[in-house]
Amino acid sequence: MVETFACSFTATELEARSGISAVVDQLRGLGMPQARVDEVQIVLAEAVNNVVEHAYAGHAPGDVNIHCNLAADHLTIYVRDAGVPLPDHQLPSGTPQDLSGPIDTLPEGGFGWLLIRELTSDIQYERSEGHNNLQLSFEIQVTQK
């Protein structure tokens, strides 16, 4: 049994916040364990923030389309936008940053892809027909009662 749902919103910070919350509420309502819901929310927030801040940067914000397929042991989330492609049409590496320097030199950003990579089981990116298609996969531990 696979549950499928979708939502769309304009790529602004406030619309993103309510869109992310709507997806998270659906997943919780479908019985996903809270700790997993938390992790999905972190990943989804980073993915959507990237669209808001980078894909539509300097343009009128376009749409973000989110599509979720939830199976018993697996969740796949598709995030689609019509903004500019990722640099070199490639997923960023998400390398951990150097935090060893003085406080003045600590990074204030660049953590998004690290979080996405650490909390997903697989990510895929495809640029086609003027759209970015990001596929985020999660394993879900099913606890038998």
Partner: peptide, 20 residues
């Protein structure tokens, strides 16, 4: 209840603002 990397960056910035 929720923080993302932008919020994390803002906390780092807040620490820098405090100064040495």
């Amino acid at each position: 209840k929720f923080i993302d990397s932008s919020g994390l960056g803002a906390i780092v910035a807040a620490m820098k603002q405090l100064g040495s």
